[in-house]
Structure formats: structure tokens, C-alpha cells
């Protein structure tokens, strides 16, 4: 089952701006997905359509194995936490839970109370008097108490301090371990998602540029380092994502490289997620997407981007 399936999904706002253009994507069940990309890449647009808060201009979008976003079935099983949690500051935490419970088809009040008790968040306190980290935890507890199959978090960490970020992530990861729900995080800071996510989607300019299992993506890519004067010969015929060259040394991120073939004087190393994402974002002409059902992966023509 795919928790999100988009086919040629587009969204154009009234001003005529395309926020998303022909995005095609299939995210399998049970993953923790990092949705990354620069500001304006279309992350929030995609997520608001997934949760049913916006309607696609064209294309197809389904959640949780074929449900229509925004339909009653989908609303009952997709939970959403926005960057600024939409809580009522004058309600107490207990009243917030009561309100959310009344508005939800499925509701596990005991679960929410246990989570908040574990974090020492007092139920009688008004939400507006809680710290930013505590408010985020209340919003998360409300989302998890709805027992969702898919949890969408749009820039959830943006306004939190490091400790609150860690606690927020820990709560989400523990819920994944216990309940096996699927999670999509959006962020423009990859470092904070690197250890939590096992599936990566990079959006750039309204299109999907990279999508795939994190371990697979990392093992498919290598960083080759060696003398600049040999770089052209060494990289000929390789899938070059990005090359950086000084007058002496060349550093090349390549895809589908056989590390046994490293030429003398060169070194092949594994890459990390941040390096990989930055390389793709800086080279918009190259993409790494899952291929058709045959499992073959396709790649755009290996255009070179040489940094002098």
C-alpha cells in the first residue's frame, strides 16, 4: 500500500503561480519520510493537499491506499500538525483534549493523557501559558490520540529549541516503533531529520527531484576524489550528479558507481544525506527517481555542473 500516491499532481494559485507542477510520487507504507527542499519548492502545498486542506488544480492524489484526501475516511486516518500548532491559547490542556476528542471519529484520551503526563505537562494549565515545546507536544499528543495511519508534520521543529526538538522527535519515533504509523516530515533543515527518516523526497521548483529509501540512495552514490587533470577521463561514462573542481583536486558525486573500479590515485567514499541532497539541489537538471514497476531506475542525462 502507498500512503501517498501522486500522479502528475499540479497546483496553481490564483496569482497564476505554479506551486507544484506534474509531481509524481509513491510513498510506501510504514516509512518515516523526510520531505525537503528550499523555501517555495512546494512542500507545504503538497502537504496541504495530502491532508485535504487544498484541492489539486490537476492530476491525481490518493492517500492510505486509494482514499481521496479530505474525504471522511481520509480525514479520520490522516493527522496533521502544522508549524504553528493550531491550538486555542485560552483553553486548558484538558479542554483541548476534550474538544479534539469530540471532533474526532477515533480518540484515545488515555493515550494523550499518558503522553502529556510523561512530559510533565499539566492538564489544567492554559495552552497559551505553555512553552513552545510543550505546545508542540500537546498538538502531537492530539494528533497521535486520533490513532492515525498517516501523520503529517509540516516544519514541526522550526520554532523549537534543541531540547524540545529532540523530545518531539523522540515522541514521534516511539509512536512509530509502537504503532507502525507512517510519518511525513517537511523541513528545510535536513540535519535534524537525518537520523529519524528512512525515506527521502526532495522537491525542487514544484517537482520531485529525488525519491527513495535513504539507505539505498546512500549506497547508490559515491564521492570520488582525485587529481583534477584526470577527472574528465575518470568520470567519462559515469552518472555524475555534481562535480566540484579546484586547480588540483576534483570531487565528484556519482551514482551507480562500482567501488571496486576505483583508479589509482583516486578515492571512493560514501556520501551522507546532507551532501547528497545539496548536490542534487545545486544541480536541478539531474534527478534520482524510482523507475517504472520493473524496478529499473532512470536518471536524466548526466549533465555536468563544474564549479571552477
Amino acid at each position: 500500500m502507498n500512503v501517498i500516491e501522486a500522479r502528475r499532481l499540479s497546483k496553481r494559485y490564483r496569482r497564476g503561480v505554479w506551486a507544484l507542477r506534474e509531481a509524481t510520487l509513491a510513498i510506501p507504507e510504514g516509512r518515516v519520510v523526510a520531505l525537503v527542499g528550499p523555501n517555495g519548492a512546494g512542500k507545504s502545498t503538497l502537504l496541504t493537499m495530502v491532508v485535504g486542506l487544498a484541492v489539486p488544480t490537476s492530476g491525481e492524489l490518493a492517500v492510505l491506499g486509494g482514499l481521496v484526501p479530505g474525504s471522511v475516511e481520509a480525514l479520520g486516518r490522516v493527522a496533521f500538525v502544522a508549524q504553528d500548532p493550531s491550538l486555542y491559547p485560552n483553553l486548558s490542556v484538558a479542554d483541548t483534549l476534550r474538544l479534539a476528542g469530540n471532533l474526532s471519529s477515533r480518540w484515545d484520551e488515555a493515550d494523550a493523557r499518558a503522553r502529556l503526563a510523561a512530559l510533565d505537562i499539566p492538564l489544567r494549565r492554559k495552552v497559551g501559558q505553555l512553552s513552545g515545546g510543550q505546545q508542540a507536544q500537546v498538538a502531537l499528543a492530539v494528533a497521535l490520540a486520533r490513532r492515525p495511519g498517516l501523520l503529517i508534520l509540516d516544519e514541526p521543529l522550526a520554532s523549537l529549541d534543541p531540547l524540545a526538538r529532540h523530545e518531539f522527535m523522540a515522541t514521534v519515533m516511539a509512536a512509530v516503533a509502537e504503532e507502525g504509523l507512517s510519518v511525513v516530515f517537511s523541513s528545510h533543515v535536513l540535519a535534524e531529520l537525518e537520523r529519524a527518516c528512512d525515506y527521502l523526497v526532495v522537491l525542487a521548483r514544484g517537482a520531485v527531484q529525488v525519491a527513495g529509501d535513504v539507505d539505498e540512495l546512500l549506497s547508490e552514490h559515491s564521492v570520488l576524489t582525485g587529481p583534477a587533470e584526470q577527472a574528465d577521463a575518470v568520470t567519462a561514462g559515469l552518472c555524475v550528479v555534481r562535480e566540484q573542481r579546484t586547480d588540483r583536486q576534483s570531487t565528484v558525486l556519482v551514482r551507480d558507481y562500482d567501488p571496486v573500479r576505483v583508479p589509482a590515485g583516486w578515492r571512493a567514499e560514501r556520501t551522507n544525506l546532507e551532501e547528497l541532497v545539496l548536490a542534487y539541489l545545486r544541480t536541478p537538471s539531474v534527478s534520482a527517481l524510482p523507475g517504472p514497476a520493473s524496478g529499473n531506475r532512470t536518471m536524466a542525462a548526466p549533465l555536468r555542473a563544474v564549479d571552477a
Binding site: 518515516v32 529532540h166 523530545e167 522527535m169 523522540a170 515522541t171 519515533m173 516511539a174 512509530v176 516503533a177 509502537e178 537520523r195 529519524a196 527518516c197 528512512d198
Partner: peptide
Amino acid sequence: KVKDVVAALAINPNT
């Protein structure tokens, strides 16, 4: 336990 490691380190359970 996987759940305890995940809750302490905030990492993906699959890891």
C-alpha cells in the same frame, strides 16, 4: 529494547 533506544536517541526504529 528498540522502543527505549528510539525514545532516548530520537532515531528511526528501523535503524
